[in-house]
Design a protein around this nucleic acid. Structure first.
Length: 410
RNA sequence: AGAGGGUUGGCGGAGUGGUCGAACGCGGCGGUCUUGAAAACCGUUGUACCGCGAGGUACCGGGGGUUCGAAUCCCUCACUCUCUGCCA
């Protein structure tokens, strides 16, 4: 654990862990004392009840005098206990997940490991354009209109642009269904408890749109509502694994960093995504992880997009994840790799907060593992399709999408 | 948004101050009976924390209060339902 947290660049994991252990010890001894005190006063209360029923009022009154001291003690113990519990909770909520042993060390995305590459990087003609020029030329995505109606990062998709988008959503959903996922359409607004359940709160408070009047948040990913479906539940072993897929818009405030890297569709405040999630027994969660990665790779192969798979390093991996693979497609005109999917095994980090459990063979209640992955995030896929498939006389729609789009060229 | 009702164990649904963690029904699990199954009957059946264990403690939407004692009384918040209004 110390090693794992060090990979994340946490300065002194040892002292942090020691702090947690100390606090837990204090919590425990306090609770024992409290339980004992309560036990005594429960006994006295029972005695009084007994005496009252027998009509021995004076005796009951005498016993009553004994209770006040216990009550006082109980109260202060209770206060101590609550304090310790609250401190412990705060401490634990602010510790990220411990990375899987295969996670490489590193501080930034520079240190991520490329573990697989697929497809040939297309060589485009000299006049090839980046997608932000193509969308203007063909009038399929309109940022100016978005600026007018909402603000930066909220584009309009128009005509064949809108239809391409819809085609991709349907294609991704159908592929997931074929792979055994169960389709859900979750709410795209969540309450605070859900945000805490999947770990967006308190860590990512600033990244979500917050409707303060009702204290609800716009989802940054469908992972939040779809995983929170199972908050506070004990899943029957025979119903595992749970495999759900859902399409939703996603909203991210993404404060900071604007510039060339985030031009056009590369980063938006609102975007569409099809998300797959799995809930699986601990011993099988890494099988599920591989299956999910294969599924995502299959999608990219069917779309004929060159891609690579990265194993994220300790410095770049998300707060809640134990292991994350990012899938990046090559966007030929920008000459850049764009992240289009991120598959994570969160292990028990979320289930612990969600109280998401199952009964194992020996009928013990145990925490499940949760996994999530994009399959896929739309805008960058659109960007890559537009750029990679551009020709002198139009943009060629990938074969697999044509039955969804109803046209084969833009 | 206004008025009123509700929130109890996997589900339904009792319970208005004292052995209530909670009747009863359904469902689940185990058993008897049966060639097998159904029916019937008997038993069992929540979660968490502490403890080697016996056992103890907490939880009847959340938080607080009254009381020796609260599922039951009071305050407060949330959610939900019905009616009215508005509305895709």
């Amino acid at each position: 654990m110390v090693k794992g947290l060090t990979k994340r660049g946490i300065a002194k994991p040892e002292s942090l862990i020691q702090e947690v252990l100390d606090l837990d010890q204090k919590r425990r001894t306090t609770q024992v004392k409290l339980d004992d005190t309560l036990s005594q006063s429960n006994n006295l209360a029972r005695q009084i009840g007994q005496l009252m029923r027998e009509g021995k009022k004076e005796e009951a009154d005498r016993v009553k005098t004994q209770t006040s001291e216990l009550k006082q003690l109980g109260k202060s113990l209770q206060e101590n206990l609550s304090t310790f519990e609250e401190e412990l909770k705060q401490l634990l909520y602010n510790i990220p997940n411990v990375p899987h042993e295969s996670v490489p060390e590193g501080n930034s995305d520079q240190d991520n490991e490329v573990i697989y590459e697929h497809g040939k990087i297309p060589s485009l003609h000299d006049t090839a354009k980046p997608h932000w020029e193509l969308i203007k030329e063909y009038d399929i995505i309109d940022f100016d209109l978005g600026n007018k109606v909402t603000g930066a990062g909220f584009p309009f998709y128009k005509g064949k642009g809108a239809r391409l988008q819809r085609a991709l959503i349907n294609f991704f959903l159908d592929e997931a269904l074929a792979a055994g996922y169960y389709e859900v359409q979750p709410p795209i607004v969540i309450n605070e408890a859900s945000g805490i359940g999947t770990g967006q709160l308190p860590d990512k408070e600033g990244q979500m749109y917050h409707a303060t009047k009702d204290n609800v948040y716009l989802i940054p990913t469908a992972e939040v509502p779809i995983t929170n479906m199972y908050r506070d539940s004990i899943i029957k072993s025979e119903n595992l694994p749970i495999k759900n897929v859902g399409y939703t818009p996603c909203f991210r405030r993404e404060a900071g960093s604007w510039g060339a890297d985030v031009r056009g569709l590369n980063r938006l405040h609102q975007f569409d995504k099809v998300e797959i999630i799995q809930i699986q027994k601990p011993e099988k969660s890494y099988e599920a992880f591989d299956e999910m990665c294969k599924h995502v790779q299959g999608l990219l192969e069917k779309l004929n997009l060159p891609y690579r798979v990265l194993r994220l390093c300790g410095g770049d991996i998300g707060y809640t994840a134990a292991l994350t693979f990012d899938m990046e497609v090559y966007s030929a005109a920008q000459k850049r790799w764009l992240e289009v999917s991120s598959v994570s095994n969160v292990e028990t980090y979320q289930s612990n907060r969600l109280k998401l459990r199952y009964k194992d063979e020996s009928k013990k209640t145990k925490l499940l593992h949760t996994l999530n992955g994009s399959a896929l995030a739309l805008p960058r896929i659109v960007a890559a399709i537009l750029e990679n498939n551009q020709t002198e006389n139009g943009i060629v729609i990938p074969e697999v999408l044509r039955k969804y789009t109803g046209f084969d060229k833009i």
